[in-house]
């Protein structure tokens, strides 16, 4: 999911070519992105999170992605469980403003604001980094094909993505035949695998041509032992966007 969200970022910014970048790798990656429905969509999903001991928490959410000019917005509304139901998280990115995350807490009726660049930000109680809602993330990575590997029986291109000034890197697995994003792995500076995100069970998004979306996104943090399973129950194309649906107010 983490890398899927990176893709969201990629989808809304102009592609930049970097020195040392492998054209073929970027082309494959871009093709896989093109197949995904990444903007102006509404998702209804269930998020199961597990700690290292296997304890489980389940949340249901509505998530909407939209673009209004140069402003990109992601609205998350928690619909279950009861104690946090009604909590809304709005992430806004624009050229002139670094990402801002606003959280409406129904218990207090107040809106708390957090800067999206704050490190470690994650999607509510999950292993999914929330800062990937920001459009700036991941845009400046170099890409290289490092080989091919079979993932769950599907032969995939292995594409290494690394920022120039960082030792940490990611590896994306994109199926050779359908050019679908199948897995994303993140590695620390010592080449230790930290997280593994599997995207599977792709479904067609109605109303937007041949765009697809994965039904199941499974993120495992191998360091903490925590994991999250995101099950998308419904994907809709948002044809008529209303900016008022992407605003929070303390009265909401």
């Amino acid at each position: 999911m983490k890398k899927l969200l990176i893709v969201f970022g990629f989808a809304v910014i102009t592609l930049k070519l970097f020195a040392g970048d492998n054209v073929e790798a970027r082309k494959i990656f871009e093709n896989s992105k093109q197949k995904l429905s990444l903007r102006n969509v509404h998702l209804v999903l269930d998020l199961q999170s597990f700690d290292a001991k296997g304890n489980e928490k389940t949340k249901s959410m509505d998530v909407s992605f939209a673009e209004f000019g140069e402003e990109k917005k992601v609205m998350v509304e928690v619909t279950a469980p009861e104690n946090i139901s009604g909590t809304k998280i709005l992430t806004t990115d624009s050229k002139d403003q670094k990402g801002i995350i606003e959280i409406y807490m129904p218990s207090t009726g107040k809106i708390q604001k957090i800067r999206a660049n704050q490190r470690n930000l994650k999607m509510l109680g999950s292993e999914i980094p929330i800062n990937q809602f920001s459009s700036a993330v991941g845009a400046d990575s170099n890409m290289n094909i490092v080989g091919e590997k079979s993932i769950n029986g599907t032969l995939c291109h292995q594409i290494k993505m690394q920022k120039e000034d960082e030792k940490e890197y990611d590896v994306a697995y994109i199926s050779v035949d359908q050019e679908r994003l199948v897995r994303i792995e993140t590695f620390d500076s010592r080449d230790n695998l930290v997280t593994q995100t599997d995207l599977s069970n792709y479904m067609k998004v109605e109303g937007i041509g041949s765009k697809m979306y994965p039904r199941d996104i499974h993120v495992k943090n191998l360091k903490s032992g925590k994991s999250s399973l995101l099950k998308v129950r419904q994907v809709d194309y948002l044809g008529n966007l209303n900016i008022n649906d992407f605003k929070l107010s303390s009265a909401s």
Binding site: I101, P106, T108, Q112, I114, N120, L121, G125
Partner: peptide
């Protein structure tokens, strides 16, 4: 202290977003 259980839980959810829930 939070006035309701929901408020306490929402505090922690907010904290969990920051990655400091550990």
């Amino acid at each position: 202290l939070p006035k309701t259980e929901a408020e306490a839980e929402q505090y922690f959810e907010l904290l969990s977003m920051t990655g400091y829930d550990g």
